[in-house]
């Protein structure tokens, strides 16, 4: 059987809210090392990769590898019934056709159980090479969210250019154009507000803002968003979930005709 208890149930709520508009349904894969998911959006332009390590859970048991297909909209409906401070336990029997979500209030005076029907989903698993990137930018998650939101009011795509000490986000639209530059800033006294750039080679790539805005829904999960870019490769946008794992998104670049 599979059983996993997450004391900070809010994490699971935030993860599902961050991905439910991007992917309709997905297989959640559980094995002894943890709980993970890899799924592409229906147009195969972006990919979500979630991994929650077994040791990030208060209790974790997975006797055999299981893949549980769930409709994200249904999962979201159920998790909305959990309070932000509830602990969430997921349970499923081997070969079971449901997964049970148990919500416990901090004082354990309220216990609720919701069963979600599992579904068979054909999913294509992509092999993502663990390559080194030309540039890595770590910036406050809220700042990244604001940049992609603001630029979306002007254009549909963003050109992200990284140099040794700054990252520039630029867009062009019918009403004009916009550029936002963030300089490297390693403020030791305010680590949550730091912007760090690690670069092997200057890089400039163009992406659809619609998807980056969708990725930014993961903002509540982490203080920082980490952008990893390489010439002519998909961008990786990572949100580290302290002590539990990470939620990562890949987005294919716009290609010059």
């Amino acid at each position: 059987m599979f059983e996993a208890r997450l004391a900070q149930g809010a994490l699971l709520k935030k993860v599902v809210e961050a991905i439910k508009d991007l992917i309709e349904d997905a297989n959640f894969d559980c094995n002894s090392s943890g709980f993970s998911l890899q799924a592409m959006d229906s147009s195969h332009v972006s990919l979500v990769a979630l991994s929650l390590r077994a040791d990030g859970f208060e209790h974790y048991r997975c006797d055999r590898n299981v893949s549980m297909g769930m409709k994200l909209a249904s999962l979201s409906k159920i998790l909305k019934c959990a309070n932000g401070d509830d602990a969430i336990t997921m349970k499923s029997e081997d070969n079971g056709d449901t997964i049970t979500f148990m919500f416990e209030s901090p004082e354990q005076e309220r216990l609720s159980e919701f069963d979600l029907k599992l579904m068979d989903i054909d999913s294509e698993h992509l092999g993502i090479p663990d390559n080194e990137y030309d540039a890595t930018v770590k910036l406050p998650a809220a700042e990244f969210q604001r940049i992609v939101k603001d630029l979306s009011t002007i254009g549909d795509t963003v050109e992200i250019s990284v140099t040794k000490d700054a990252v520039k986000f630029g867009t062009t639209g019918d009403i004009g154009n916009a550029n936002i530059m963030c300089r490297q800033n390693k403020a030791a006294d305010k680590p949550d507000e730091s912007t760090e750039i690690d670069i092997n080679e200057a890089v400039s790539l163009t992406f659809a803002l619609r998807y980056l805005n969708s990725f930014a829904k993961a903002t509540p999960l982490s203080t920082h968003a980490v952008l990893k870019l390489s010439k002519e490769l998909p961008i990786l946008v990572e949100y580290h979930i302290p002590e539990v794992g990470r939620l990562a998104f890949y987005l294919a670049p716009k290609i010059e005709d």
Binding site: V45, L126, G127, P234, A252, K254, I255, D257
Partner: peptide, 14 residues
């Protein structure tokens, strides 16, 4: 003009 790339053309099946 630029076209949207697809992930399948960058990452192969695992």
């Amino acid at each position: 003009k630029s076209n949207q790339g697809r992930l399948d053309s960058f990452f192969g099946p695992s």
